[in-house]
Computed example of a mutant assay.
Amino acid sequence: MIPTQALVLTAGLGKRLRPLSNIRAKPAIPVAGEPLVHRLLRWLVGQGVRNAVLNLHHLPNTITGVIGDGSGLGLHIRYTWEPRLLGSAGGPRAMLPLLDACSTFIINGDTLTDMSLDRLAAEHKQSGARVTLAVVDNPDPLRYGGVIVDDKGWVREFLPPGQQASSKHFVGVQLVEPSVFDQLTLGEPASTVGGLYTDLVASEPRGIRAHRISGRFLDIGTPADYLKTSLALAPESGLSKLTGTGSHVDPSARLVRTAIWDQVTVEADCELTDCVITDGVQLPLGSRFTQQILLLQPGSVVPLVAPLVAKPTSSSEGATGV
């Protein structure tokens, strides 16, 4: 029987997605018209999950305002609050006491996949692993951290981005035994990679299993990734879903590969190509933008313009995603 409870990690700052994540927490950002976390929870419900805990830190109201108590989705939702970020291991340590002490899914709050949780659960149970990670072939080892897996399916090492070695890429879905986290101090920050999971690999060769998936996995790490994914999902949701609630686009405006958030006004003869227009922006007659993000700063009615494709940085945030 598939586990029916999950932790959804929604407390992160979403640094790589800035400036979009300055407006809404990353899980609350609309993807083809539906907030990412709502889309994720709907997927969980469709696979039998009935209880979930979400952790909160950055712009929490943008998440709770979308999800509430979960009843609209057929879920029982509870929340934990992190005054300081507890990390990829410390967060689950604080969340697990709110659920039964049994096998539990842990889902990254920016996950978009159509993989089967039933198959993940079956391999986890059959292998006897304490943690089972869903993985795909690493699409870009220079950009993403890697997971080294032996020929029998056991995780042997975690690699930082920039490594040329052939590796797997963790897609943000895992199944764990809660006892793995018992050794951690409640309320103290802790990491999985470079901490709990790295130690587990060293101490228990059959502790962490890799479950290879063939399903779809979509990335929204950067603003350009976000727009690409929204456009990819728009045909499924309807192209009108690229325009948010309460927004008005003049019929004479020309929009090409552009996402419009909520309460946006686009006046006549505007031309927008490869753009993201965030909540509350008003574009006057004849505005023209290409590959730009437009957003409002607090107290201002004049939108700030930022490039869709930012200059590369040395940040390794989300390097492994585990």
Rank of each mutant, 00 (worst) to 15 (best):
L175W: 01
Q263D: 09
V301I: 09
S252G: 06
I277Q: 10
P35S: 09
I293Y: 06
L9K: 00
G246M: 05
T290C: 02
Q5Y: 12
G146W: 11
P303Q: 04
A129K: 03
A32G: 09
T229W: 08
A306Q: 15
S167D: 09
N51Y: 01
S179M: 03
K125V: 15
T265C: 02
T245L: 14
V322E: 03
P27T: 01
P35K: 02
D100Y: 09
S116L: 04
Q183S: 15
A28V: 05
G46K: 00
G48T: 13
V173D: 02
F158V: 14
L285S: 14
G207Q: 04
T64H: 13
G87C: 14
T290E: 04
S166Q: 13
L196R: 08
H76V: 02
A89L: 04
V266S: 00
A202T: 04
L117Q: 05
V31N: 07
I106N: 05
L239T: 07
L44C: 01
E188Q: 12
S167Y: 06
L99Y: 13
V264R: 04
L159I: 01
D137R: 14
P189N: 10
L117V: 13
V53G: 05
R84N: 04
G74Q: 01
I63T: 03
V149C: 11
H38F: 07
R119D: 15
V31A: 13
V147L: 08
E177T: 03
R216N: 04
L41W: 00
Y197H: 11
D250Y: 04
N51S: 15
P3A: 12
H211T: 03
W43I: 00
K125A: 04
G246S: 10
I208N: 01
L120S: 06
A32L: 02
Q183M: 12
V281Y: 03
V131Q: 07
